[in-house]
Design a protein around this nucleic acid. Structure first.
Lengths: 153, 153
DNA sequence: TGTGAAAAGCATTAGGC
DNA sequence: GCCTAATGCTTTTCACA
């Protein structure tokens, strides 16, 4: 599978907003019957276009609504130190995202915490204890204005 | 519904990684039969703990693998200008996330594009034409090290 | 809250255009 | 590549511990 037609993109676009539609409902939205939609779905899943299906939770209600973007500079930027840092980061549950970035910092981390107090302790105890980490700047999220959980299609 | 027990959290934790399990499979993972799991699910959905179910797509394969964090400073920070800016941002598909942040900038935008050329044009044509926007800095993502699509539980 | 079984509805496959 | 129709699961409801 290498090319997607308009219907495939339509299916992906619908599913990245709501993955709980039945094949039937999905089919009616793209003006087809279930069988071809079902087959397209399998092709999209097996072709890796759809990576997984997930539930989006309410961070606020689950007491994880305090969000911080944490910019990190490594103690020194080389392959070993970068590898060490990224490995450690994978196992820290509060770090929900981590990007290697351009600019004055090396990494951008998205962090979820219950509140400022928790975050402060987290910085001191968890991030602060990482040797490969040089410096760090916290940018606090005051409001989540938009969050698509998807990509433009 | 106001309190979640350990089983509820376990269910949420499983679902934010894989929402395609059958009730039966989910039930066996939490050592219950389908009915109570089904009822808990409905409670979690109706209580707003689960906001929605989505398909996670492969941005790379869908030609949207060029990711930029764009820091924006408004021309002037007041309620009207902020409202105008956030309203416009909602309708720009390339902007997949937008946060009101602390620090030297007012907003942090996550932007998906096919490539640098596209992004350059996007900045000039789309973001550049927003009046409420003062200045802007692009931070390019070189590598997505971690992306959980979930929160710590 | 929980169990197990039955009913209603879906996903999935088969057979044909 | 599409359709309709059949089958086997799943979800969902219900009676009951």
């Amino acid at each position: 599978m290498d090319t997607l037609d308009k219907t495939d993109l339509q299916i992906l676009s619908i599913l990245q907003n709501n993955a709980r539609l039945t094949t039937k409902e999905l089919a009616s939205q793209v003006n087809l019957s279930s069988t071809p939609v079902f087959e397209r779905l399998k092709r999209l899943e097996n072709g890796g276009y759809i990576k997984k299906y997930i539930a989006v939770l309410d961070a606020e209600k689950l007491n994880q609504g305090f969000i911080v973007f944490c910019s990190v500079k490594l103690s020194k930027l080389n392959r070993d130190i970068a590898a060490e840092f990224t490995k450690i980061v994978q196992d820290i549950p509060e770090v929900t995202e981590c990007y290697n970035i351009s600019g004055s910092y090396d990494y951008l981390l998205k962090i979820h915490a219950p509140n400022m107090k928790y975050y402060q302790e987290f910085i001191l105890n968890v991030l602060g204890s990482i040797n490969s980490l040089g410096s760090l700047t916290s940018t606090f999220v005051m409001d989540e204005v938009k969050h698509n959980y998807g990509i433009p299609l």
